[in-house]
Design a protein around this nucleic acid. Structure first.
Lengths: 144, 144
DNA sequence: TCTCAAATGTTACGGTATAACAAAGTTATT
DNA sequence: AATAACTTTGTTATACCGTAACATTTGAGA
């Protein structure tokens, strides 16, 4: 199962970083993994409530914040949602395409375009940090 | 005064586009212009209430949506805010650089890099929509 | 003037996120 | 073990962000 594999990798990743992937955090990560594409905090909250009987917003937000900080998830600001990071462990800048209709996510290599961006930002005095590039649009299936 | 100058340019821009910069929309634009940097919808709402006595959220959101659609403002998703577009007439997509240290915002033209991105995304089946690119980094003043 | 469409007003609500404090678990040290 | 210090999680309450739905007004053209 792919989820179990990812969890295992996440576990190693957290150990390496000296942070703890607790039971709750693992549970939230599994819930996010169970979706394809973008997941909202309140969806995760609802799922968590089904599994535990009760849970409050801070519980899920804290777990999500941890997972983002650990590099296991990315926040998609434009959609108020979260996606799984597909480049855990490799220091690789992704170009993340999110379909605004179906939530499907695709990752490409952002290196070439970030080279251009770094140059452009540099001439304005800005040093842009390592990061992923997120764009919203429509995937092939959702274009009519 | 710089605001008056911008308003004048905005007026011409709207006429060219065949859309109307009504009194309300102009008032909201002036309020956004009165700030430096990112402004939140509810800040504008509060200002509007001071000036008119009463106003409700849809009033300001509709005006802001119009101004974004007209290319006069940009929405900054990551901060739930809005900034003035500094490329009215020459560009509709911003490359927005936010200094993680001091919060300063700089806007460049994202058109060239988005052309490249559209091509790259297109070959993966994605049609990326009109949007701003927002990147974090460090501005000249904050780099030691 | 009349009609239609666009813009604005108004009410009410739903989605997003965090503050503040309490309780429970964990770790290190004695 | 016992304690203390710290981290994590639970709980309550609330603040912030944004829109649906419908009423009313305004403005341009027939």
């Amino acid at each position: 199962m792919e989820i179990a594999c990812f969890i295992e990798a996440a576990d190693r990743h957290c150990q390496q970083q000296g942070v703890k992937l607790t039971a709750l955090r693992r549970q939230v990560l599994e819930l996010v993994l169970s979706y394809t594409g973008v997941v909202k905090a309140y969806q995760v909250l609802a799922d968590l409530q089904k599994q535990r009987g009760i849970a409050a917003p801070p519980t899920v937000y804290r777990a999500l914040d941890f997972l983002v900080a650990a590099g296991l998830l990315h926040k998609v600001d434009a959609l108020n949602g979260y996606i799984v990071c597909h480049h855990v462990g490799c220091s690789h800048e992704g170009l993340i395409l999110v379909c605004g209709d179906c939530g499907r996510v695709e990752e490409l290599d952002a290196t070439p375009v970030l080279d251009v961006l770094r140059q452009q930002a540099g001439s304005a005095g800005f040093a842009i940090s390592q990061q992923n590039l997120m764009l919203t649009g429509r995937c092939e299936g959702c274009r009519v």
